[in-house]
Write a protein that binds this DNA or RNA. Sequence first.
DNA 1: AATCAATTTAACCAAATGGTTAACTATTTG
DNA 2: CAAATAGTTAACCATTTGGTTAAATTGATT
Lengths: 203, 203
Amino acid sequence: MKLKDKNTEEAILQVARKAFTQKGLTGARMQDIADQAGINKALVHYYFESKEKLFALIFEQEFRKFFSNLAAVLSGDSPLFAKIQEIVALDIERITEFPDMPLFVLNEISRNPSMMVKQLKQAQAKNMLAAFQLQINAEVKKGVIKKISAQQLLINIQSLSIFPFVAKPMIKKVMQMTEKQYQEMIRGRKKEVAEFIINAIKA
Amino acid sequence: MKLKDKNTEEAILQVARKAFTQKGLTGARMQDIADQAGINKALVHYYFESKEKLFALIFEQEFRKFFSNLAAVLSGDSPLFAKIQEIVALDIERITEFPDMPLFVLNEISRNPSMMVKQLKQAQAKNMLAAFQLQINAEVKKGVIKKISAQQLLINIQSLSIFPFVAKPMIKKVMQMTEKQYQEMIRGRKKEVAEFIINAIKA
DNA sequence: AATCAATTTAACCAAATGGTTAACTATTTG
DNA sequence: CAAATAGTTAACCATTTGGTTAAATTGATT
């Protein structure tokens, strides 16, 4: 493998990620990807065989980002309220870095749920959820928080963290925000959302 | 216009809605729409001219659904907590009826934000938001709830209501739910989410 | 029944699209 | 350096896709 390899291959990946996350599998064009990478279309096939293979690669990477922090935080040994703060902060930071990622992942999973099968070890997920539920139950017994299922709490945390990004253009339009105001709003949420959740479950 | 008109036209719309909401503008095929409507492809063009025009029509309808209840409830004269309950309940009911709608709308707006411009009278939206903020401020002054911006509260309500549908396949997989369990979880949220929000903002 | 407009279809078309081939150009290596 | 290997391209191909056309069918109106 030569030096130029990594450059070209990386350039394609970078450009393909942008194309796929913004336009989806069916909306992205191989010719556009080649053009934007400054190479011939055949080269894309030389490195990645087919559109589907290239897409699968990108999808896998974005899918990983989606869950990158969650597992670590959930199975960490922080107290419950700290975990909530960590998840929210990490979610918002990560998505601020890759704003197109969540809608892309949700969208493509919805169109083709089987793509998710290979990823994600289900056993781990179930264990993590169970452990989280135990931690919740302990706080309930101590009288610190109200009774709630780990499922619902986790869904609430992720909803509040992720949805404002997925709905960005809608929110900006409806609330007539400039990009600056939107960013300001997001920054505010990093603190507010965690507090919101903690208040919601406090006994 | 003959009798058969409405039937054919309606059949196309029905089938096109399914195709577009599930596969998006670029993923849906005119031939498939014609086939599934049991007619010739040229007939689709006879009634709706082009793919873009047909799509715009469907999008407009789905976009309306997205906001159908919000305006009425927000500008109604219910007390704050009742409004929250109403919005959550109506959101969840409506999306249960049209599960593909929110991801479709969010997705297509994200790909082409200008589609939203014609819809939605911005003036009204701004007024509604301002009025809602006044109602919130009144409750804050009474010491009933904590200080919060109408923007953030509204985003929280919509996040908690809508996101679980947008992330349905993901949630089912990660939490290893059957369709029945998922529906059960959604049903639970109709009550729980409103309580969750109200607890979160209670002073 | 004849007529006229609305509806529907089979066949066709041009452009776009994912993919391939064969040749050409570095680059590495024995 | 020569030969093998890897990288790159222009030209081409088959299929798909949105869209069109002209003819046929249907259905109401007189």
